[in-house]
Design a protein around this nucleic acid. Sequence first.
DNA 1: CTGGGGAAGGGGCCC
DNA 2: GGGGCCCCTTCCCCA
Length: 395
Amino acid sequence: MLLTQGPDGLPDTVNATFDVFSPETFTVILDFIYSGQLDLSSHNVIEVMSAASYLQMNSVINYCKNFIKSSLDISVKDEDSDRCLSLSETCSFTSGAGDESTEHQQQGPRSVSPPPALWTRDNSRSQSGFMGKDGEQDVSASALKTNPSSPANEFSAEVDDLQDPQDPLYTLPGSERRRGRAGGNKRRASNSTRSSQHEDLDIQEARTQKAEKAEELYATLPPIVGVISHFNKDSNPIMRFKCPFCTHTVKRKADLKRHLRCHTGERPYPCQACNKRFTRLEHLRSHFETIHQARKLVCRKCKCQVTEETGHVVCEGTRRYRMCTTCIQEVGCDDIPMDSLQAPNDEPALLLGVDGEEEGDTKRNWMVNDDDDLAEDSGADLIIQQVDDSDEELS
DNA sequence: CTGGGGAAGGGGCCC
DNA sequence: GGGGCCCCTTCCCCA
């Protein structure tokens, strides 16, 4: 626009200048144009974004926004500044050694604990997700765009590959709930009709492969490093264990092991009733009791409190919940498909090893049970199957 | 469009 | 170190 119109609107007298930003800033942008790498730091991001705005480089603006957003997320998440690393060195936008040492010095107390081996740019895993949760994926995604050959991308691809969205054992952190809840139950219901022996075999094979990949991932993990969180009143250092994937630190190694599952996507605890998988046994138990055992003594319709005697158990596919007598009568049997009504003593779908459907199936298994039937129903027992990829023996 | 509720995920910590 | 409980947050569905 500058060259075709000129700032004064007279094409013959174009005099475009870039006085609004420094040569250093323009160097950053020019490097980005040629290399795809945007060397952002906490010191230049504002000016780079300003220059990008002037130059109408929306992609650069977006990268700057993400960088700033990342900085803000870090500030919120890691209020304990000694556990936080400097922004510029963690962000995968930067391409070279640049002012790393400067960053170290300027961040001062913020970079007390991170061991250098973990927080250098050469360590791909330490860069890949420093914000945790959604934020870290944002950065990884941004890094992918910005620097396709960066080590961070190598790991992002590795994790993405590990967390095959089609694989129930390994799911992308954060994606499970989207898949599971964005109509997940209903989708599962429709998909279940396609289940077959071949698919089961494929799933088994995929699980084996993914388990091997998880093992590889664990095997290539940087060493778990204890970092000094702070000092107690006796000036003794308080050690914490730092996640090699993000900035999270925990007091115990066992907690770190648990935390790592949110990075690896490992879900060793499958629900026998619906095949949904969980990272923790307690989550599986909670899910099973809530969804498949109707343990909540609350009427699903009117939310009133019921007892085990007054709360009739309604089965919908593998899902069970309770309804009070009044609501049962209000709903009436007419609203329940007659062809799927089952006598209380019939085996519910839960017991038949139905693959994942809950509600929404065209042939819903509706039934109303007395509470005693639930108690006697072997399907109400939580059966946890052992999985190959876990050392934990489940009972 | 919005707020409430349910379900799930994750962290801290006790046993 | 594992199991489990409690709590909080996030996301999705639904009225």
